[in-house]
Design a protein around this nucleic acid. Structure first.
Lengths: 236, 236
DNA sequence: GCGAAAACTATACGGCGTGAAGTTTCTGAA
DNA sequence: TTCAGAAACTTCACGCCGTATAGTTTTCGC
């Protein structure tokens, strides 16, 4: 017990420093973009030496990986919350709420969005399996929920899509199928396609490509959602 | 005349070196990703000093901007060619051809795609107006052509979208409206939405997010196009 | 109180973009 | 043909970066 308490103190300090490093990194990212995440800048900000950080993260990439996981989790939390908060509403409204939560998070945290989905940081190599597969799957499952909610409002179309379970990552299916037992393979495909739709519009907007063409990206996004709801046969 | 010939020679050498710099940079990008584009590496490859490049590009960002313009032009050429080559086919097939050309180019040149649409290079700041607004608009016009081809196959739906010409960049409209005089504002919005759909799926695929979830991204893309053709009322 | 482990610093290396100054090469006119 | 000047290019320097190695200080468990 005494030993536990002692190591507990060390571990607590360690955890605090680890958290401070990540927080400082996120601060730097917010003010200077993902490129501003440098070990030396973090150390400078914290009044340490750059090498001290190596006691907490083996390499800069490890730190970035941890940041991606954290930020991705925050995104997943945001959309999950929107979904849960709209539990009593109609599917069309829930889908709209989910999608708006997704876009709002991205526009509020553009640097975080770029960290997750773009080239995070100069020379960064994502570790095998991706840095935040769990959060990524949470987002996918969220979209599967959209697809499932839609399916509930329409007759089960004959599955002529040609998709089978073998087309999808087992890790994803492991999360999706128990949650939505009636969702067919084509439903998962639909979910991924919807993901692509939203991701594309948001990415173009976050990276400034959309704003070069239209002054009303929000109107465009709403229009997209209207069309989505209509496509899913949820009525307007 | 003599003077012209002389300056002509200097200018020719200069143009050749400029081209060699860009070519070397693209080579480095292809083999090592956008991050590999460094002045020193280019110079090393060319047997010069890094500072010699400053005689041709004022900063590294200027070089990157020129590269983006070139690569974006290559992309625009690729999709324009696909569109032109399918001139005698049905709209549904043309749209499919265009979209496949877009995706094929992206998958064949993932580094170029990331250069255009991602964070091009550490610390790169795009100049005002974007590096390749012309190529970007060419791509947008291409998608407007898709939307216009679709519109031709369907009755003009009452425009309840709420879009007006004021919602769009004049530079874009300047190219789109003369080419497609009957396309309403909602048609431009549709074009941008389609752009978003394709861009999203392709981006997720190029950045590896999609492959983490499905083994059949191509099937997914075809499914997306089927749905697009159906949505546009172009028949199967 | 002490030995060990953990946390942290100092120094160094090579790579990066880029500024300033110096050198070579080419050119167009006297 | 020679020569001033411009253009092309090199050298050196600075301050960034990640990170490896070695040394120092602080802290903890006994």
């Amino acid at each position: 017990m005494a030993a536990t308490r002692s190591t507990g103190r060390r571990e607590r300090l360690r955890a605090e420093t680890t958290a401070e490093i990540k927080l400082t990194a996120l601060d730097l990212m917010r003010s200077g973009g993902p490129d501003a995440i440098t070990l030396r800048a973090i150390a400078r900000e914290m009044g340490m030496t750059a090498n001290a950080i190596y006691g907490y993260f083996a390499t800069r990439d490890d730190l970035v990986t941890a940041l991606i996981a954290d930020v991705y989790t925050a995104l997943a939390d945001a959309v999950d919350t929107a979904w849960a908060d709209s539990a009593r509403r109609a599917p069309a409204e829930r889908i709209t709420a989910w999608a708006h939560a997704f876009r709002d998070w991205a526009l509020t945290n553009p640097e975080g969005f770029r960290l997750i989905y773009g080239d995070p940081v100069p020379g960064y190599q994502a570790p095998a399996g991706g840095p935040a597969p769990d959060a990524a799957r949470r987002v996918c499952v969220g979209i599967a929920a959209l697809a499932d909610a839609a399916r509930a409002g329409t007759e089960p179309a004959p599955d002529e899509s040609g998709f089978t379970w073998d087309d999808f990552d087992p890790g994803l299916l492991h999360k999706v199928r128990p949650a939505f037992p009636d969702l067919p393979p084509a439903g998962v495909a639909l979910a991924l396609r919807i993901w692509g739709h939203l991701h594309g519009l948001i990415t173009l907007e976050v990276y400034g490509h959309l704003r070069a063409q239209t002054f009303a990206p929000d109107k465009l996004f709403r229009s997209e959602l209207d069309q989505l709801v209509r496509t899913l046969n949820l009525g307007r």
